[in-house]
Nucleic acid binder design. Structure first.
Lengths: 234, 234
DNA sequence: TCCTCTTGTTAACAATTTTTTACAAATAAT
DNA sequence: ATTATTTGTAAAAAATTGTTAACAAGAGGA
């Protein structure tokens, strides 16, 4: 079965270790995104396409433990922590935060690969089942079934692009996202899609959810930057 | 979470370690079955009710590695291996056989508990995928007998291709699958079958299960990509 | 074998969705 | 206030999908 390769995000600020990881795992056909800071990794994770996160526990700025806490709050992505120290406390804290595994450096590549494989087997099954439902301004958005229910209770049918766009917004509330990022999240095409497509899609979402651009409550325009989801999620 | 407690099978021939494990994990509400040999454990595992296997790697007779190999061939149960030695080779072999984790004695109880929790979170999702009878939107789909029963109770007869297609959908809920992948799943031919065949088959499935493409609840079109099964499995 | 029936496949055209284009309206800067 | 830039909207164009119908390939029976 020729299914798409798993997407692994690697966060490691030590260049040697990082490139070794990227090269080794990449050679097994995985799609790899490499980052040197938590912030860059989170941009990629926000798109919701990643299957596995491999993060160093000691990063400049936000560290692997903090990333684990934040990711676990919002997704069921697989998490493997890397650490230079063999510290019992660190390891237990990481695992209790929800990291699936904790590997100490220097690690054996074959062992890491085996752990990656086993974990991906678990998460690929999980991803299909996790049900995520968002509530905002009286609307209900079920990501799995792709259904939106309005305040009055009626079904609101979204097209694929509208659904993808709403999913990106809802999973990144309060974050201004530029058109390029939004396009990357919704398009299935290779070539460069016109950024104005986003404006049209936002307009259609606004029309379907009854949001007025002059007094926006859900999708707010950030002039010169992009759009933000400004509804309160509850 | 008010579901039944997870069922953990512990195989350890050293009485002290075993009773400590049983007492500790049992105190967190798990249902524990304890054994001192692989053979006794397999009798329990054969019932198919277990969620997690914790096995010592060095047992009299059949050992933990052999158990891992055998269990992995037939089920997706979670497996944690225990070992007295800190042996790289043993650990890698265990992981490559499909064990989810490998813990060296003497282990920290809190760490083991964290690993058990994390793994159970993964396997509970997975168990749903190895199901052979699916329920969704009032329908019952028995994969083995190829029978579909409608909400009203009547039998719905599927053709071979329709059955294969429904099986692929139901075993990959929430995953957008392109037409090539769906064709590969339903046809046994090598030559290039027209991808539009899928559209026609999806249409026929929709007709038989009463799904409206304009407001889909079961088979959702992902424009430019393929189709997704978006019914909630329960 | 021939016929009949069922299923799988293809083709054609209608309907829908996505993307582009064009222009009006709004915003920010000079 | 004027200008340039950016966004909102509508409508057309391009791409994709829904639907129907017809044809082909097998299966089973007379």
């Amino acid at each position: 079965m020729s299914t798409r390769p798993a997407h692994i995000v690697i966060v490691e600020d030590e260049p040697v270790t990082r490139s070794a990881l990227v090269a080794y795992l990449g050679s097994f056909g995985y799609r790899i995104s490499e980052c040197d800071t938590a912030e860059k990794a989170e941009k990629i994770l926000a798109q919701g396409t990643a299957d596995l996160l491999i993060a160093d526990i000691n990063l400049q700025g936000k560290d692997g433990l903090e990333m684990t806490r934040e990711q676990r709050a919002r997704s069921e992505i697989g998490i493997i922590l890397l650490s230079g120290r063999t510290d019992d406390v660190d390891r237990i804290v990481g695992l209790e935060l929800g990291a699936d595994d904790y590997v100490c450096k220097p690690f054996n590549r074959r062992e890491l690969l085996a752990r990656v494989k086993n974990l991906l087997r678990r998460t690929s099954a999980m991803r299909a089942l996790t049900r995520r439902v968002f509530h905002f301004n009286g609307f209900t958005f079920d990501v799995a079934s792709r259904q939106v229910t309005g305040p009055a209770g009626g079904q609101i049918v979204l097209t694929r692009a509208e659904y993808e766009l709403l999913r990106v917004f809802v999973t990144n509330p309060g974050t201004v996202m530029d058109r390029d990022r939004l396009i990357a999240a919704i398009t299935h095409r290779q070539d460069g899609t016109n950024t104005r497509t986003i404006d049209v899609l936002v307009q259609r979402l606004r029309a379907k959810l009854g949001d007025d651009p002059k007094a926006p409550r859900i999708f707010t325009t950030s002039h010169g930057e992009g759009y933000v989801f400004t509804a309160q999620l509850d």
